[in-house]
Design a binder for these strands. Structure first.
Length: 647
RNA sequence: GCUGAUGUAGCUCAGGCGGUAGAGCACUUCCUUGGUAAGGAAGAGGUCAUGGGUUCGAGUCCCAUCAUCAGCUCCA
């Protein structure tokens, strides 16, 4: 038979050969590395025969699908090990995920750390046996009977929910059988390194209405070295974690008596936010935005118009409750969003089509009653400040204004140096979950198509996500991953064809008709707390000079240099730099060590020599000793670095 | 909100079986004036997260609450 290989060549092999044997004929190394086969674009186990004329790609650990296959098999080994040690455990699901795998179990007792160690040991024992995997297919009733016999109710449920005609496959290794679509490795011995990372609760089928199962996370590699490298990467991520580093660098802290999700920005953290905020507000003004300052709270009346009272009540801090409200007692709520407030500014007077587009911005503090388990450092908090803005425009202006919002967001990302770290998500509604949204289906589809067209024109490389829209409209979310790989929205730009009507916002068009403007909701840099968190992680605390809370430290070797040091400090401050003076009676090595740990970009070291020559010895935090320079030249260098911002 | 872990000096952490707390760094004072990541000495710092309970006696055991961390669910 003829097989098309991945390099484009066509080769002849004996009929009925499987992928593993073909790999062996190509090279012994490839046979050793082979984990799965991609046959005509579909991943399958290596031991299945390859049909004549097929296109074959042998997948190794270097391929994403190869990796997944290895880890998927590792998850089965995990299940086998758990069954061996905890025979009463019920199996749920166990997929490969981005950096490893997990398996969910229903057990009476949650797994303790010692359990994980024991399970990992058992896994090593199983892997050593290098058992072969076999695949078999059963008709639905027999498959259900088998899983009932094995006492696996979750598997029975999974089979029952499979659509008709779907092949129901099982994989068997030793005496362990698991329902699984596969593919899998030919034998468990190909998993060379495995590590269990943690145990945690997880709801069956991802719904909080269901029972909470116990999930074990682990990872697996094709070599011990690769596993060690990965573990080292996790350690490095921990060191960069904004929640740890941000506290160590005294950017923020929290207080038990203030409460969850309410971080305190310390002077250094607040300084960075202030720099960003001033920069954003100035840039927005340059782009035609008008600033508003709207109240932090409003009566329930406002939220009833906006829909928040019905769609976002649980997310708000309400002073009072729905019962009081029904009785006519005034109930105020802190604002979870700025939109309805800025809309009131729009409603201040009648608007003409000539007034549009109208761009409002506000550095807006919002309050959201996040569930208690959600809070995380500066990334998920209950009170945050966002570069919020709303644009009212005519239908013919939507595209240009939307482009302007994207352009501004991109400009901000470039300025802070995060442009390469983001991805774009087109967040759509879920037509099957009408409760969550307002407006009719045709309107939703029309708005979404419009948004998609604009983004296509702009060549934005987005992924579509159903069910992620706001309740009033679709969003372009600019997503970013934190140091642990967890994704969050940094920036969002939304098109809203609905709230203007609800709020009675109109403009008089050129034909004299009253019309509702289209509203764009947008942020330019996101919320400052979250952005600060991402910047801490991006730069591991060593902020670009324009953002560094302290930009220059002037430090003396002996007190004979104090006079010159003070002169320099004054000159730096006069040039608008954030300088600090270290005149303490300490050794220079000590002062430098401290400044290095604080990640101050520049250190100016002064000894008798510098005083005599009226020069400065410059040290950069990343390049070390730069030698002696004229004060004017280092000052100009730093000022220029601040001017160009990022990097 | 759910599952689990954790909470001892400003920070990082010790304190088998219950007998009223200890180290390093940081801080204060003194000595030292020393050229690119820690000079030396002395001192001061803790109602052991909070509130109950068991006990002759609780940092240690039990319960509740609060906070922190990981994951789930939710979300900027």
């Amino acid at each position: 038979m003829k097989i098309h290989l991945q390099n484009g060549s066509v080769r002849e092999f004996a009929d009925g050969m499987n992928a593993l044997d073909i790999a062996g004929e190509l090279s012994q190394q490839l046979k050793k590395d082979a984990l799965a086969a991609e046959v005509n674009g579909k991943t399958q186990p290596l031991w299945l025969p390859v049909p004549d004329g097929a296109t074959l790609n042998i997948l190794t650990f270097a391929h994403e699908e190869g990796k997944r296959t290895l880890r998927h098999t590792a998850s089965h080994v995990l299940a086998q090990a758990v069954k061996a040690l905890f025979p009463s455990a019920k199996l749920a699901i166990g997929p490969a995920i981005e950096n490893g795998f997990y398996y969910d179990f229903d057990v009476e007792q949650p797994f303790a750390a010692e359990d994980l160690a024991a399970i990992e040991k058992e896994m090593q024992r199983i892997l050593k046996k290098n058992a072969r995997l076999e695949r078999f297919v059963l008709p639905r009733d027999e498959a259900i009977a088998l899983m009932k016999e094995k006492g696996e109710p979750y598997k029975v449920e999974l089979i029952e929910d499979l659509p008709d005609g779907e092949e129901i496959s099982f994989y068997k290794m030793d005496d362990f059988v698991d329902l699984c679509a596969g593919p899998h490795l030919p034998s468990t011995g190909k998993v060379k390194a495995v590590k269990l990372l943690q145990a945690a609760g997880a709801y069956w089928r991802g719904s909080e209405k269901n029972k909470m199962l116990q999930r074990i996370y682990g990872t697996a590699f094709d070599s011990k070295e690769a596993l060690d490298a990965y573990v080292e990467k996790l350690e490095e991520a921990k060191r960069r974690d904004h929640n740890k580093l941000g506290r160590e660098l005294e950017l923020f802290t929290t207080s038990d008596v203030i409460g969850q999700g309410l971080p305190i920005l310390l002077p250094k953290g607040a300084k960075i936010v202030q720099i960003l905020q001033r920069f954003v507000e100035d840039e927005e003004e340059r782009r035609g935005y008008m600033i508003t300052k709207t109240p932090f709270m409003a009566k329930s009346d406002l939220y009833k118009i906006s829909g928040h009272w019905d769609h976002y009540y649980d997310g708000m801090f309400v002073m009072g409750d729905k019962e009081m409200d029904k009785k006519g007692i005034e109930v105020l709520a802190l604002r979870p969003m700025t939109c309805p407030f800025q809309f009131q500014a729009y409603l201040n007077r009648t608007r003409s089509y000539r007034d549009l587009p109208l761009r409002y911005n506000e550095t807006s503090t919002l309050f959201r009653n996040e569930a208690s388990g959600e809070m995380h450092g500066l990334i998920r908090v209950r009170q945050f400040t966002i570069s919020e803005g709303h644009l009212a425009c005519r239908p013919d202006q939507v595209e240009e204004e939307f482009r302007g919002c994207v352009d501004l967001a991109k400009f901000m990302l470039e300025t802070v140096g995060l442009e390469d770290d983001v991805s774009y998500r087109f967040s759509k509604w879920d037509p099957n979950d009408r409760e969550k949204y307002i407006g009719d289906a045709a309107e939703w589809e029309r708005t979404q198509n419009l948004m998609r067209d604009i983004m296509d024109h702009m060549m934005i490389p987005y992924v579509e996500a159903e069910g992620e829209a706001a309740f009033y409209g679709p969003k372009l979310d600019i997503q970013i991953r934190n140091v642990h790989g967890k994704e969050d929205t940094m920036i969002t730009i939304q098109i809203d064809f609905q709230l203007a009507e609800r709020f009675g916002m109109t403009y008089t068009d050129s034909d004299g008709q009253k019309k509702h403007p289209v509203v764009l909701h947008r942020t330019s840099i996101g919320c400052y707390e979250r952005t600060l968190a991402l910047l801490i992680e991006k730069y591991a605390g060593a902020f670009p000079t324009w953002l560094a809370p302290t930009q220059v430290k002037v430090m003396t070797i002996t007190e004979r240099c104090d006079g010159w040091a003070k002169e320099i400090d004054r000159a730096l401050k006069a040039a608008g730099l954030r300088a600090e003076l270290d005149l303490r009676n300490e050794k220079i090595g000590f002062k430098i060590r401290e400044a290095q740990m604080e990640k101050v970009p520049y250190m100016l070291v002064l000894g008798d020599k510098e005083v005599e020559e009226r020069r400065v010895a410059v040290r950069s935090r990343k390049e070390g000793d730069l030698g002696s320079m004229e004060l004017e030249s280092i000052l100009a260098k730093i000022v220029e670095e601040v001017r160009v911002k990022a990097k």
